[in-house]
Design a protein around this nucleic acid. Structure first.
Lengths: 119, 119
DNA sequence: ATTCATTATATAAATAAAAGCATAACCGAG
DNA sequence: CTCGGTTATGCTTTTATTTATATAATGAAT
């Protein structure tokens, strides 16, 4: 959940990034990983299990994400052959990519320009 | 405890910074504020009350900080005229300053170079 | 010597957060 | 039309975190 940064002497800088929409949490590393697992497993249920998260929490997180996003990040179907499932939308895919880009940018900056934290 | 960042469309980027020593948390915004309150009030007790934190937690935090720091960030005295107290060292003062400098640097970078988070 | 407000610390209580459970609706396949 | 596995959601239980309480030690001032 938390990325390590370049060492500065004996210390190392750690940073955590979120994207909010109107003060409501939209994206964080945990949520992004959940989206990735949904893509991989095809259901909220299986995704939650794969990261030892309760289904309820996973379901609430995707609900919040969908509420914040301009377009749905996932699409769900209830019932049917395998009971239903959830797939990541192309928009959701873009969201993941952009989040990682943002995070990498910040991390790179810290590694490059914040190694003068000597105390 | 959490700093707001420049808006990028309807979204805003939020970041939280910590400094660790050998994977142990050393500094975060909460701890820095606690140090500032200790400086202001002259005791862990009064500092904790001023930010509605339990004395126990405040005491543990300064203990951890002192354990991580190369030099003590505070100096305590037990007993005496007013029962004792705690003062911030010059080193602790430098620690506060450096933390804020680090945080500002990261925030400025985000405001300047991360406003392309459009999704 | 007594007092007083502090540090120091263990233990208990209270709060908050997460997980678990139960139940209903859904719908393609057999 | 029943079955299976999923989403959806309220309610309960458990777990984790934080705070509160209690007690001891300290030492300058009275």
């Amino acid at each position: 959940m938390v990325k390590k940064q370049k060492k500065t002497g004996d210390y190392n800088i750690r940073v955590r990034v979120w994207v909010d929409k109107k003060n409501k949490p939209f994206l964080g590393l945990g949520r992004v990983i959940l989206l990735e697992k949904i893509k991989k497993h095809g259901s909220i249920n299986a995704a939650a299990k794969s990261i030892k998260m309760s289904y309820r929490q996973a379901w609430q997180l995707v609900k919040e994400m969908n509420e914040c996003a301009k377009q749905p990040v996932i699409e769900k179907t209830i019932g049917g052959a395998n009971g239903g499932g959830t797939v990541l939308t192309a928009y959701g895919e873009a969201v993941i990519k952009n989040f990682y880009t943002l995070q990498s940018k910040i991390q790179s900056f810290i590694e490059k320009d914040c190694n003068d934290f000597i105390i």
